[in-house]
């Protein structure tokens, strides 16, 4: 029973990181109907930026905030400069631009910070004043911080004018434009938010998987799986999907022999299964296409 609880709690912690990535995937998808294959590498790059601030002597929380803020700006700039020109291009061209971004970020990170594996400190203190045999302090902090981020995102979309405008731009661009919403900038804002949330995910996962240029490949795959499972059209669903994937992953790793070696294959099977049997995901809208 204790093993079960440990696996589940650790699963929830890692799952909340997947939730962050899944949420950024959904944000981009909602904003501009793309899967951003470079989302993981962007988050990895943000994590390196936080690491650089740390190396310059900044306290860890300051580094965290600065890295997330810079990622937000970078997301906006990338949308304006690179994604907007291919808005109406064939899907293949759009995919190629994302692949290009992935290659650039991966190699630039390797060039600037080298490919060696680096330890990354946890954002959280080594103990919160109480000890538990079921869950470590970093995992506990991860769950708390992710919940906070999600709450902020929810409040932003639910209670602010900009959030409302962004939802309008995603739901019905033409009508939104007619009532004076600058749709293009809302999309860019969506990209910025996605990059910022991805950065949170990257900085939270780095102490667990260690910092290296390829650290996000698996995490991104799980993020995609979570987003699809929850429903690519539903931000709340994506968060829940990420959590479910995290817990499932840990159960498979803990109970299925050889399971921990086949984690990525598990994600692959899950992605294909969801796409085949429930393409709208658990909470997504079923899209009816008129022919």
């Amino acid at each position: 029973m204790e093993l079960f609880l440990q696996l589940t709690l650790a699963g929830l912690a890692i799952g909340s990181i997947y939730s962050c990535v899944a949420l950024s995937v959904v944000m981009v998808y909602q904003a501009s109907d793309h899967f951003n294959f470079a989302q993981g590498e962007m988050a990895m790059f943000s994590t390196y930026i936080a690491w650089t601030f740390l190396g310059m002597g900044a306290p860890i929380w300051l580094s965290f905030v600065l890295a997330v803020a810079l990622s937000f700006l970078a997301g906006v700039v990338i949308e304006r400069l690179l994604v907007k020109p291919v808005e109406d291009a064939p899907i293949l061209n759009q995919i190629m631009v994302f692949i290009g971004l992935l290659v650039i970020f991966n190699n630039m990170a390797g060039w600037i910070w080298e490919f060696t594996i680096k330890p990354f400190p946890s954002l959280f203190p080594a103990d919160f004043g109480f000890k538990s045999s079921l869950i470590g302090p970093h995992h506990m902090g991860v769950i708390g911080l992710t919940l906070l981020v999600l709450l902020l995102v929810f409040c932003f979309f639910r209670f602010t004018r900009v959030g409302l405008a962004m939802r309008a731009a995603a739901a019905n661009p033409d009508s939104a434009r007619l009532v004076g919403v600058s749709v293009g900038w809302m999309l860019a804002l969506g990209w910025g938010l996605a990059a910022a949330i991805g950065a949170v995910g990257g900085i939270l996962v780095a102490p667990i998987v260690y910092l290296e240029p390829n650290m996000m490949a698996g995490v991104l795959l799980y993020g995609f799986a979570g987003a699809l499972l929850g429903g690519i059209t539903s931000p709340g669903g994506a968060v829940l999907g990420g959590l479910i994937i995290g817990v499932l992953e840990n159960w498979v790793g803990g109970y299925v022999p050889g399971g921990s070696e086949l984690k990525l294959t598990f994600a692959l099977i899950l992605i294909i299964a969801v796409l085949l049997f429930k393409p709208a995901g658990l909470f997504g809208r079923v899209v009816v296409k008129r022919v």
């Binding site: 795959l221 995609f224 799986a225 699809l228 050889g258 070696e261 294959t265 992605i271 294909i272 796409l275």
Partner: peptide, 23 residues
């Protein structure tokens, strides 16, 4: 379209791990 790209992306990412599998 996009979904096929995603599924094949997953296939590519999972391939090295499958090749390393103990069994």
């Amino acid at each position: 379209g996009l979904y096929l790209a995603l599924a094949t992306f997953a296939l590519a990412v999972a391939t090295p791990q499958l090749l390393k599998f103990d069994a």
